[in-house]
Design a binder for these strands. Structure first.
Lengths: 127, 127
DNA sequence: TTAGATGCAAAGGGTTTGCAACGTC
DNA sequence: GACGTTGCAAACCCTTTGCATCTAA
């Protein structure tokens, strides 16, 4: 399937390239609407997906609304298999010193960090 | 406000303590329903929030459905201000070697990682 | 007794999808 | 002309909320 160049897609990419922040789909929608007033949200979402698949843009899967929970108390890192979606706990020690590094460089108060590795888990490798 | 010990809350915590994976709210709901058939989802969500606030459980804000996008191509880290919600790009170099460390320890194929720091940004500190 | 907790159902938000019309190649 | 794209609206999914009722303390 070969993608076509449409006004809408180009406008969306344009907005994203010039954005300073990390816009949400809705923000992009509002922005693009200024040049293409009757663009629909569906188009924005579909194009964001296409652009992501093309490698033109990145999608940040940071704090989302779909949450998972765990009883473990200590802070630790996770691995997410992109094949089966499973999440594994890692027993890699937490690099607390990174917080200080960032705090020093930015002047922000850093309280914690979340680290998630992505890849293919063992059992999916053998499928 | 002092929390009360209810059957529902205890059952939810119990399920979570024994869960091997990182269950979603829905999974927990289905599990708890076996002992308390008429429990409602609202109760599950409310209790997960309470338990989180009490520090009994942790909420994993990993890949969610609410996404943000960016045009930047290179991989980099982020800082999220828990006060204003703003996300900042960090120019900390990406620790690619961590991927190899995890790969060696787990036998998984690691393709990337996402790192998000949390804390208070400069302008929110002065409010 | 009383304030916190529950069940239910409706509402909320962000995202996806079906469909007919449209536009690009 | 074929097939990817669009606009629209409805559907979806997960989560939150309002309300009357219940219940732990």
């Amino acid at each position: 399937m070969i993608q076509r160049a449409t006004r809408q897609r180009e406008a969306i990419l344009q907005v994203l390239r010039c954005a300073e922040s990390h816009p949400t789909a809705d923000w992009i929608y509002e922005k693009v609407k200024k040049s293409i007033p009757n663009i629909s949200k569906g188009t924005v979402y579909r194009n964001l997906k296409v652009l992501k698949d093309m490698g033109e843009i990145a999608e940040l899967n940071l704090s989302g609304t779909v949450c998972r929970y765990e009883g473990r108390q200590d802070n630790h890192y996770h691995f997410r298999c992109t094949e089966c979606g499973q999440i594994f706990d890692l027993d890699e020690p937490v690099h607390k010193e990174m917080d200080e590094t960032i705090a020093r460089k930015t002047g922000f108060t850093v309280s914690s960090h979340q680290l998630e590795f992505r890849g293919i888990c063992k059992s999916c490798q053998h499928k």
